[in-house]
Design a binder for these strands. Structure first.
Lengths: 97, 97
DNA sequence: TTAACATATGAACAATTATTCATATGTTCA
DNA sequence: TGAACATATGAATAATTGTTCATATGTTAA
């Protein structure tokens, strides 16, 4: 173990970390820690443009960090991976020394 | 717990993940998983410019992921944090599903 | 001191990306 | 069907960033 992965895997790995490397996406993920939320709720909660949130949710979804549930006009997003919390907490451990 | 951190902390957190979000830096970290290595050794091993490696090592060092030990003309880099391996492994878990 | 070597650094460039604005798509209800 | 609402998307822009080249800094040994 700990052997260097193939280049293809390394690029994917870097891409995943890139997703965590933006404060807006981190805020969205934190918002979803507790419960699922609609796009509008997240935008309202973070005081950001609906468009911005939607764009970033797509990034999160493409990378399989969140999943969706449609209910009428709204689309509810929630965490789609057990690792998300743990990865963020590990990063936080590092930041907090 | 799981409460959203202050903005300042969120930016730091994002910055840490940004560091992991580059394949060159991931390769450098993997190289250091086993043992410490000099700048030249890493550049040779990864077949990249010495300058590129040096620049990226500075990023890693600034973010306290690697530390240095001077020995004559060479500077040996090694991992400076217990979390590094774990964070990368978590990310890998996600990538590998 | 000087030559040779190892590493660091600054400037420049290309590429990537987060946000905004405007608009499109899709859903509900009258 | 059409109006109102929720979300998605494309284009444009500004900002950030990884790499290279050239050169500077720092170390050793003669």
């Amino acid at each position: 173990m700990d052997k260097m992965p193939e280049m293809e895997i390394l690029f994917e790995l870097a891409d995943v970390f890139k997703v965590f490397g933006d404060s807006t996406r981190l805020r969205i993920l934190y918002t979803l820690f507790e419960d699922e939320h609609s796009v509008g709720e997240i935008a309202e909660s973070l005081q950001m443009e609906q468009s911005t949130i939607s764009h970033q949710l797509r990034v999160l979804r493409t990378n399989k960090l969140v999943k969706i549930r449609r209910d009428g006009k709204q689309i509810y997003y929630s965490l789609d991976d057990d690792h998300v919390k743990k990865i963020i907490e590990m990063g936080l451990d590092h930041v907090l020394e």
